[in-house]
Design a protein around this nucleic acid. Structure first.
Lengths: 125, 125
DNA sequence: TTTGACCCTAACAACGCTGTCAGGGTGCAT
DNA sequence: ATGCACCCTGACAGCGTTGTTAGGGTCAAA
């Protein structure tokens, strides 16, 4: 199938399909005229990529992961590096989550201190 | 004081002080020779900026916020736009937090399904 | 054969900072 | 007057995508 069709079927934009390919993921066959020609297997792989992307993984991470993933469920091949990688991703996410939580409570704190416009007379001007 | 000193005192790099200035925040006086000359008031403002930056706010958000903030605690001037802005920031953070939580549990789910290397024989090669 | 939908590559722009480098002044001390 | 620490501006690089545009082929249908 052509890129437009697989795009619709897996939910990845044409732009991103080409981008992933340039990054070394999902390289389809080409027709004589240079058109990308995706197989059903490519479609399954594309769906997996979409899952990982939605999970917030970078292309670089997917690079390590995809060779180990065999089912769209996904199930994995035995692969210690994969486990380490995933654990690393979780750790990174946890770090960012903690940072954002801190930001959030900071701002919420600001809001709590915020006087209400209509009740507070202008004091400084 | 010069930029190097205020940098050390507020914890913002020299680079970022200049950047914030270019963005319209914190514009210090200049000496005859063009050196930035920061006042104590500038230092207080810089500290507020640092707080907001640490809270994850963008320069654009600070732009709206800073005119309303008068104390480094921070306390705010009455300012409805400010409240709306902060609430918007919280909403944005909540959105991102939710996304990341979803990513996290997705990956954790992957990990749970991951077979252990040493127990599973190589099947594919 | 001409239209129109589709495909191709290449490359620039943007997000929001942040570092770094180049090329050049300023100011104080020796 | 020489050095050294500090300052200045401007601009490029990088993060990891994602959109968009430009300039150009391909293919099937009317």
């Amino acid at each position: 199938m052509q890129i437009g069709e697989i795009s619709q079927r897996c939910g990845i934009t044409v732009r991103m399909l080409r981008f992933y390919e340039a990054e070394g993921l999902l390289q389809p066959h080409r027709t004589g005229s240079g058109y990308r020609d995706y197989s059903e297997a490519d479609l399954e792989e594309a769906k997996r990529i979409k899952q990982l992307a939605d999970a917030g993984l970078t292309v670089e991470a997917m690079h390590d992961l995809l060779p180990c993933i065999i089912s769209p469920k996904p199930t994995f091949h035995p692969c210690d590096r994969l486990r380490a990688r995933l654990e690393g991703e979780v750790a990174k996410l946890d770090q960012r989550l903690a940072d954002m939580e801190r930001s959030r409570s900071q701002i919420v704190g600001y809001l709590a201190d915020l006087p209400v416009d209509t009740l507070v007379p202008m004091s400084q001007d």
